[in-house]
Structures are given as structure tokens and as C-alpha cells.
Amino acid sequence: MSYQEAELVNQADLAKSRSELGSAFLRILGYFREDGDKAIGAIEQAMRERSAVALVTPAHTLKGESAQFGAHRLSSMAERIEMVARRCVETREGPDELIEVVVGLRPCFTETMSLLDRDSNPLVARRPATFGRRSDAPQGFGRAI
């Protein structure tokens, strides 16, 4: 499956990670945010320098950390970068074919983090759908209906 077809975040994997990490989940998610941003910056810099060698480690790191949170699309993109970069190192070619993937990496990371933040916010999870209202109450502010 290509990274374009990969699910942004797999909810079952995210729930499993949340369960396994317990009270450390939000702290580890914060580390992922910081590490992911650094890894993407390193990948972007390596691409500007056309350095396949410099692409491998941050892509490998991003792949594993993304997978831990069920972020399959981001993990697949990072895996593609890592595998192509490794091949380019072996064949002594430039990583030019990765430009499209690298350009899409930061927007995917931003979208992924937004979803992870929304789904991981303990306040959002506890708020009932009809907060402050009875479901049979009239709908209208300040007016008797």
C-alpha cells in the first residue's frame, strides 16, 4: 500500500498506545511532537542538500514514532523516504525522486498532530454531547418556545 492510501490515524492503534502508555501518554505525545518537528526539519534540510545519507536517520526515527501512535500515513511517508534514501546511498544517486514526499511531510504531520491532540484531549473526551441542556429542552436562547 502506498502512503497516499494509508489511513491518517488508526483509532485502534491509537487506543492501544493510549492504554499501554497509561498516564505517560500525553507526555510521550508531547515528545513525539518535538521529535517529529525536529526530524522533519532534518529531512527538509537533507533534501535541500540532496544528501541521501542525511535522510535515513530522521526518516527512520519518524517512521517508528509515528507508528507508535497509529499515524499510518506519516509512518508510511517516512518509510518511503528511508527506503529510497538507503537505496540512493547504495547506488550513489541523489534523492530527487523524494521531493514530492518530503514536501507533503510537514502538512501531513500538522494534520496528524491536530487529530491526535483532538482525540487525546481528556476534557473533550469527558464532555457530554448535550452539555448543559436536556435533550427534550426547547432549543432557543432566552425565549420561551
Rank of each mutant, 00 (worst) to 15 (best):
R133W: 06
S19D: 10
T61V: 07
M83K: 11
S66V: 01
G104R: 06
S114R: 10
A39T: 07
S17K: 03
G142C: 10
A42R: 08
V124C: 09
I99Q: 11
P58M: 05
A39I: 14
K16S: 11
V9Y: 00
N121H: 09
F32M: 12
R48E: 15
R27F: 11
G94R: 09
L14I: 14
R27H: 02
S76F: 00
V101S: 07
E82A: 04
G36R: 00
V56A: 07
R126S: 13
Q139E: 11
V84S: 05
G70N: 01
E100G: 13
T110G: 02
R126N: 08
Q45M: 15
R87S: 15
H72R: 08
Q139G: 08
R106S: 05
G132V: 07
L116T: 07
R80M: 11
A125H: 09
C108I: 10
K63D: 02
V89K: 02
R127A: 00
G94L: 15
L116K: 02
R18F: 00
A78N: 04
P58V: 00
E79N: 09
I28Y: 01
R134G: 11
N10G: 14
A144N: 15
Q68G: 12
P122I: 10
A12C: 04
D117N: 12
P95T: 12
S19K: 04
Y31M: 07
M1E: 06
T57L: 13
S2H: 05
L55V: 09
A24K: 08
A46S: 09
